[in-house]
Design a protein around this nucleic acid. Sequence first.
DNA 1: TCTGGGGTCCTAGGACCC
DNA 2: TCTGGGGTCCTAGGACCC
Length: 391
Amino acid sequence: MKCFIHADMDAFYASVEQLDHPEYRGKPVIVGGLPGDRRSVVSTASYEARRYGVRSAMPIVQAARLCPGGVFIRGNMERYREKSREVMDVFAGFSPEVRQLSVDEAFIDITGTEKLFGPPEETARKLKRRVREETGLTVSAGLASNKYVAKIASGMSKPDGLFAVPPGGEAAFMLGLPVGKIWGAGAKTQEAFARRGYTTCADLHQFSEDVLAGMFGDSLGAFLYRAVRGEEAETFETERGTHSMSAERTFPFDLYDEFEIETQLFALASEVFFRLLQTSFQSRTVFIKIRYGEGFYTEGGQETFRDPLGTLNEFYEKLLALFRKKYRPGKGVRLLGAGAALEARNPARQGELFDESNEKQRRLEQSILEINAQFPQAALRRGRLITLRRR
DNA sequence: TCTGGGGTCCTAGGACCC
DNA sequence: TCTGGGGTCCTAGGACCC
């Protein structure tokens, strides 16, 4: 019998802030932006802040109205990632099979670890204690015979709880839940449930897989059929790798000036390209994203080329061409994004990356990358960005 | 109350090939 | 001389997750 823990940190970013700043403990902490930050949203609200109605994804200005006395913090991803590594190290002490889902949660396969840590519930309690002792943070745990049910169970126990679904009790556990608890059915699917009058998993359980597929499409239908029965989600069974890399920025005020927009595009291209250089991937596909202030309307464009990208300059030129093709002049740009689809580097064609014409440019870009890595504060970038900073 | 940033996966249509 | 069918790659858009 398989046995999994889903471990999910409680209000992770806010908890790290309260750990690092004892004066914030017991206070409503809101990570995501300062009260005056236009267009920022709440990333994490501490449980104290949730009592005021503050929630993730809520605009910061709204959070500031609900909780004027709150401690507002923009956030420090570097620090959260560092803390995340500490937590994951603790998990690794309980099983070699740890599957990290995001910065603050993971599945831990504890199948067959009874001799080392005792029965599953005891193991989960030990894990929670170890996380608290070694990192100063609390974690909620769900325990079940498969990852999907463990994931839902951990959500039932927040904060700092433990919820165990007994083996064989998976379907009964799911059937008692409202459709809102189905992980993988978001706002749109919830609306579709509501239109049809479905409120609990039991309402969905009465349908065959074919009927669900007819209502929701083959893929979602098959997923829902399994989910309400407490069966493993197939997406958890396939190992997934990195397929793309991107950066995007929402501007406090819409941009209208084309030079400024293109300068921002260059900044995004630099970010992505230098991150790309630090991986073992190459890219032949670039993409952009434009969101207009008017109507919150978003459109994208992408293009695939025969040969992999060689230089930042080349990446930027390709993004710029796409942008000029898509952009509707005169419209205010709210958000701009740039990215690249990744593929394994082809060693046979490696030589082409270093062809004559690109070699000088590549060396220059590589040294900029190295200097930036060594002296982050130096921020050595191309002239175009320096111009941007002065404006 | 206007709605972040970084990702993955799915769908649907068109091009192209056999 | 009326236009099959399956596989694969590409593009655009959307749903969903934390």
